[in-house]
Each structure stands twice: as structure tokens, then as C-alpha cells.
């Protein structure tokens, strides 16, 4: 029989262990943020985010990769959102619960764990070569979309599953068809959490390098992409380039850390926008 003292000790130990782990996680986050900020803060000026790179990336700003990243996100989401949501609707609302459905679900779950560099090479082979989209904003955006789709499907499916059966019953009992019920009741109810899932995907997609480095992102581009068949500069790839190809580290170093801060701000900004949109939608419901 355990004594009161032993139970109390076990309780204290567990609490201490939990606090410790929490402290470690927080410290990692805090330290990396502090490190990046101290290194990159000096580079952050208005010119830095409004001017293109100059003199072999040793001077100027990063507006070209910022715009390029935004364009990539836009293309990838335009592709991934409809495909992801519609696939989730198919699985959750239409597909019969059979072996085939289960296999397909498993396939999609596995797709989520394909390393991004593999997806990048697939994108190169499929979008650039096979579909003849070339090395372009379109190919890179689609490849990033492929990366986002499995997560989006899972997020959307969970959201759809959480819509109470009561709502569907009420809709059908009023003479709605299946599609009307999905479109007018199920989707609007699920949308806030689908959007949350989508935001996380955007954050992930915005920071990926491997899927775009073969398919559409370039080392340097003199201007913005004006068509989806142009190449683009992108923030994560720009960081990669600065960190690996630079010979004048004293000059490129601050730019590199400045770019990292901008990339973090971008992904954080996207998340904040999504969270605000979500709470707004919650209020409306």
C-alpha cells in the first residue's frame, strides 16, 4: 500500500518534470527568437523590405522574394484549398465506408509524410516536364499545394466530422438534398475549423524550400513574376542561398537574418489574419 507521503512525492516529481519540460520548450523558442532578432534586427529598415537585392545580394532589400513568396502561397492555396476541401467532402459525406475508402485514406495519410525534397523532385518531373509548365511560379505553387493537400484534407475531414448529425437531420427534414445540406449547413459550420487547418498549412508551405528549389524558385530575378509561367524568388530559398552561397558573409549575414525575421513575420502575419477571420466568423454564426 502506498503511503500518503509516497503519493505526495510522486505528485511533486511529476509536477517538477512537467515544469522542466515546459521550461525547456519555452527556452528553445525564446533563445532562437532572441538569437535571430539580435542578428537580424539591424537589417530591418523600410528600404530592406521595399527594395530589390543589389550587388550580388550584398546590398539592397528583399522585396522580390517577399512578393515571390506571397505569389507562391496564393497559387498553392488556390490549388490546395478546393482540392483538399472537396476531397474531404467526398470522403466524409459520399464515400461508402469500405475497404477502398480505407485504403485511399491511408494513402493520403502516407502522402503527408513524404519528405518535401521528394515532392520537389516529383513536382519537377510532373509539373515542369510532363505537363510542360516549365520551371515556373505555377509549377512551384502546385508542388507546394501538393505538400499542403494531405494536411488540408485531414483538417477538413475532422472539421466535417465535428458537424453534429442534428444539423444534417434538420436540413434533410426540411426537404434539402444532400448537396444543399453540405453546401448550406455542413460547410458553413465546418468552415471556421477548416480555415484554421488551412492557416497552419499556409505557414508550413510559406517556409518550405525543397519543393520550390527545383520547380520555380530562382537564385536571382531582376523583377517580379508577371505571369504564372515566370520564375520567382522566394524567402526560404533566398535564406538558403544567402547561407550557403555567400562569399562575403559579413555583408550577407545581416541580410540573411533580416530575411529570416521577415519570413517569420510573414507566417505569423498569415496566422493572425486567419485567427481574426475565424473569430469574426464565429461571431457571425
Amino acid at each position: 500500500m502506498k503511503t500518503h507521503f509516497m503519493r505526495k512525492t510522486a505528485d511533486l516529481t511529476a509536477t517538477a518534470a512537467l515544469c522542466c519540460c515546459m521550461a525547456i520548450s519555452t527556452a528553445i523558442l525564446g533563445a532562437s527568437l532572441a538569437f535571430l532578432t539580435s542578428k537580424g534586427w539591424g537589417a530591418l529598415t523600410w528600404e530592406f523590405i521595399t527594395e530589390p537585392p543589389r550587388a550580388g545580394m550584398t546590398e539592397g532589400g528583399i522585396v522580390t522574394p517577399i512578393v515571390g513568396s506571397v505569389q507562391l502561397i496564393a497559387v498553392s492555396m488556390a490549388f490546395a484549398f478546393p482540392v483538399g476541401i472537396l476531397t474531404a467532402i467526398y470522403f466524409n459525406e459520399y464515400a461508402a465506408d469500405g475497404t477502398l475508402t480505407r485504403l485511399l485514406r491511408l494513402a493520403i495519410r502516407s502522402l503527408a509524410s513524404v519528405p518535401s525534397v521528394v515532392l520537389g523532385l516529383f513536382g519537377f518531373a510532373f509539373f515542369c516536364s510532363f505537363l510542360r509548365f516549365g520551371v515556373s511560379l505555377l509549377s512551384a505553387g502546385l508542388t507546394l499545394g501538393c505538400l499542403a493537400i494531405p494536411t488540408l484534407i485531414t483538417a477538413a475531414e475532422t472539421a466535417l466530422q465535428n458537424v453534429p448529425q442534428d444539423f444534417r437531420d434538420a436540413s434533410y427534414a426540411l426537404g434539402a438534398t444532400q448537396w444543399q445540406t453540405i453546401y448550406r449547413v455542413v460547410l458553413p459550420s465546418a468552415l471556421p475549423s477548416i480555415i484554421t487547418g488551412g492557416i497552419l498549412c499556409v505557414g508550413r508551405v510559406a517556409g518550405e524550400t525543397a519543393p520550390i528549389m527545383f520547380t520555380g524558385a530562382v537564385y536571382f530575378s531582376p523583377g517580379f513574376a508577371s505571369s504564372i509561367f515566370d520564375t520567382v524568388m522566394a524567402l526560404p530559398y533566398h535564406i538558403y542561398v544567402l547561407a550557403t552561397a555567400g562569399t562575403q558573409i559579413d555583408k550577407t549575414g545581416p541580410i540573411q537574418y533580416g530575411t529570416i525575421l521577415v519570413l517569420l513575420a510573414l507566417t505569423l502575419g498569415i496566422s493572425m489574419t486567419g485567427i481574426v477571420a475565424r473569430s469574426h466568423m464565429r461571431k457571425k454564426l
Binding site: 444539423f167 437531420d169 434538420a170 436540413s171 427534414a173 426540411l174 426537404g175 434539402a176 459550420s189 454564426l285
Partner: peptide, 20 residues
Amino acid sequence: VTALRRKVGMVFQRPNPFPF
């Protein structure tokens, strides 16, 4: 069936208003 369900309405055990 949809026309039938408009003619024969239903109220459920638990109140189930839509989240609108």
C-alpha cells in the same frame, strides 16, 4: 422525397437550430 419532406415536417427530440 424532398417534396415529401416539405409536406411532412419534423421536429426533433433535442432542439437543433442551425448555427445561423
